[in-house]
Design a protein around this nucleic acid. Structure first.
Length: 229
DNA sequence: GCGACAG
DNA sequence: ATCTTGTCGC
């Protein structure tokens, strides 16, 4: 898949934050995505051990959610983990795996936040700027913002608000489980983002894309076969 | 100054 | 994220 990296990553934390502020205005909060036209959805994840990163991207059919392609990419992590700057640590290896994908995907779901970020540019948005397809952020925990606990039923959701702005949706993908935080990455609207995440989570709390990418990344880290190359 | 803080 | 066994709960 095409990935056009448009800026350097060897920056200091201060420079990185300033760059995010300059890039944030470029994020596109639309248009809506017609799910009936979605054929393939991709998921990405990074497993780490020390300063070694093992990135994996998986492609699933939609709405069947069957794995049809898996690609991995290993690289040394040059940036430390700093809340709000995760993109500078994980984007490099993920780009390697994305570029190896041959399937023409219709959307990508990242295991991170998108607009629900202190400067409105979480990993899903920053990397989304390099892509020509819609990107979505689906995180397991909160980074910024406040919200009311969603109803206990599957599909219940509530707004995630940060500094007076709705930056995402807190979604209950399964009855009784802790909710996930869905936000626009780039080139898609909030409503479609939530619908796609729910459609990809028919059986577990996390989307199948995220689960499959996570499992493949762990296999890669342990030297096993990531599978389906 | 204090607390919060994706993966 | 990763380090780790058994264990509480539906």
């Amino acid at each position: 898949m095409r990935v056009e990296v448009t800026h350097p990553f060897d920056l200091t934390p201060a420079e990185a934050r300033r760059l995010q502020g300059e890039l944030a205005p470029r994020v596109e909060k639309g248009p809506p995505l017609d799910l009936s036209g979605v054929r393939y959805v991709a998921g990405a994840d990074v497993s780490t051990q020390g300063d070694e990163g093992y990135a994996t991207v998986v492609v699933l059919t939609f709405p069947g959610l069957e794995v049809v392609e898996v690609k991995g990419y290993e690289a040394r992590l040059e940036f430390p983990y700093v809340p709000g700057l995760l993109a500078f640590r994980e984007i490099p290896p993920v780009v390697g795996a994305l570029r190896a994908i041959e399937t023409e995907v219709d959307a990508v779901i990242f295991d991170a936040h998108g607009l629900a970020h202190p400067r409105r540019l979480g990993l899903a948005s920053q990397l989304g700027l390099f892509l020509d397809v819609p990107s979505i952020g689906c995180a397991k925990s909160l980074l910024v913002g406040k919200y009311e606990e969603p109803g206990v039923e599957k599909g219940s959701r509530s707004e995630l608000v940060h500094r007076g702005e709705v930056v995402g949706q807190v979604v209950r993908t399964r009855k009784g489980v802790s909710p996930v935080f869905v936000s626009v990455g780039n080139r898609i609207d909030a409503q479609s983002a939530v619908e796609l995440v729910l459609a990809c989570s028919p059986k577990y709390r996390l989307p199948e894309t995220t689960r499959q990418a996570h499992n493949a990344a762990n296999r890669l880290r342990r030297g096993e076969e990531p599978g389906l190359f």
